[in-house]
Design a protein around this nucleic acid. Sequence first.
DNA 1: CTGTTAGCGCTTTCAC
DNA 2: GTGAAAGCGCTAACAG
Lengths: 348, 348
Amino acid sequence: MTRKSTHPTLSEVARRAGVGTTTASRVINGGHRVSPETLARVRGVIKTLGYIPNPAARTLKGYQSRMIGLIVPSIADSFFSSCAEAAQAVARANDSLLIVTTTHNAAQTEIENLTVLMRHRADGLIIAPADSRSQALRDMIARIDIPVVAIDRPVTDARVISVITDNFKGAHDAVRHLIGHGYKRIACLTGESNLYTICERMRGYRKAVEAAGLPCLVDTSVEDFQAAGRSIKRLLTSAKPPDALFTLKNRTTIYAFETLQKLGISIPARIALLGFDDFELASAVRPSISVIQQPVEQIGRVAAELLFEKLLGGRDGGSPARAWRPRKITLETKLIQRSSCGCSPSVT
Amino acid sequence: MTRKSTHPTLSEVARRAGVGTTTASRVINGGHRVSPETLARVRGVIKTLGYIPNPAARTLKGYQSRMIGLIVPSIADSFFSSCAEAAQAVARANDSLLIVTTTHNAAQTEIENLTVLMRHRADGLIIAPADSRSQALRDMIARIDIPVVAIDRPVTDARVISVITDNFKGAHDAVRHLIGHGYKRIACLTGESNLYTICERMRGYRKAVEAAGLPCLVDTSVEDFQAAGRSIKRLLTSAKPPDALFTLKNRTTIYAFETLQKLGISIPARIALLGFDDFELASAVRPSISVIQQPVEQIGRVAAELLFEKLLGGRDGGSPARAWRPRKITLETKLIQRSSCGCSPSVT
DNA sequence: CTGTTAGCGCTTTCAC
DNA sequence: GTGAAAGCGCTAACAG
């Protein structure tokens, strides 16, 4: 019955040490303005009791929960888990906790998460918006008064900083590389064509292909393995089959690769392959797969750093909202030349 | 200067609605025992003000932060990120937040994380201990009075439930399968041989190999790609080269596979390969790699469910500590037969 | 049904 | 140097 499990409190520490709560509080917060003896005594009691200050009480006073939220589609996705890892490191360096929530790209869930995080008084938010153009999301963000940083996909038209990959340029570079190899019919495969990132990459593909006077071969139906099979077979058996494949995402690249393997189509001899977004085994498979690599870890780190920059600015100077103007940070991609595009890298 | 950014409070809602704080509070908590008109009016004010209750204040009263902590080596690791994803889903279902911290297998960092989580009054903890036998960790866990569930690696000798993979049996099954194929010299490759999971897998390997009267060929030096190369070349050029490779972890499997590919060694004709722990592209590479699959997602889910079971038990009945006895839940692995071990699966 | 009131644990003036 | 006391926002008796 007796709930002895309760944590010891500051006043208990004070009582046992024979001092006032003020002094005890001072000891906890650095021990300034406290005589050496008192300090030692109080510290002793704290240690004995295993006292840990209650942040809820502190938050209640100081308006700082020392928690930041991260809202991503999925954390099982290597792209986002890498971002999360980086963000968590930055959070820790700033003595804060990282709270992770997932949306699975559902706008509804996203709003819920946002609400929950607000309820818990997160100091700031990092979010990969399910829908960049969602009005509900923008309204929500406009309403809350804490710093928000968007990653991977920008929040259009809102007072948030966005940290994103230069998808357009990355895709453009990729296609130009393929063109450089001499391919004339470059097909573009993808799924989830409504996502911001995918749209940008398609734009990059179109631009490059059109600038070179090559045909624009896009198939946005490749949502799963079966679809990849259908799509590729159709392309291969068409009157004018493509000589290169540009896949717009991780999964699609894998599906395409696997399908080609199954069909016994030689890569890159019969058809070349270049994918957007690197993945762990891209270098291990035969042939190794050339990709456009995103600065994954950097995205998470920069986003978190920007967030704390704002948070700290708010702590020192005026209100956190001050001097908070929208910005968009675009990070460069990198073309990793492996074998599938026709390159013969000396080092795999 | 005016910090108008402050969230509206309950009393403000009450005042604007012309009611007492109790009534306002009741409205927030379901609206029972409140007249319909009052209820509507208060709700209106809440909506207008965009009022959100302050959980810090609630926590301060009720001793429930509705946050659970997850301490893992790394979240960029697919094993743990999948666990995290599952755990986060369960947390959400229980109206709680998941706080993720990473240790990178450093005991020191682990203790720090534990402390931080305690400070924030997490309701419960899920942890993948850096060192199963760490005394400091056990002491720490003994000191705190919240439920703790260990995953992947058990915390020996403490009042925590452990949810782990049956590493021993999984490895044993794997080797028996290899033996079934007729391989006589099965080498076991791994790194991080001090980890609990790896030890168990080695135990399984030994047992199976010895029971069959086969030689025990273990190399625990395969920490990176270079080491894999060295190890495999050494094995291959030895007087009696192995005819099968059993790799104890994800990374090692990949390193081994890649090395064999580079050396042009045919799999499984010249040497078979079977790895512990599945990974995304294991089925995409040629030959596809047979593996022992862990119930990754299940581990995270079960651990979280167990945690909330205890938490809920505590909410209803007596203290959370009551009826909390150590237990160990062992989840079964599954042999995924692909091509690298010599099997010819009909469906890849 | 509804309001008053007393804290939860902590920080912070403001006196001594 | 030190302590008393006033709340931070909320919930829960305890009266009306």
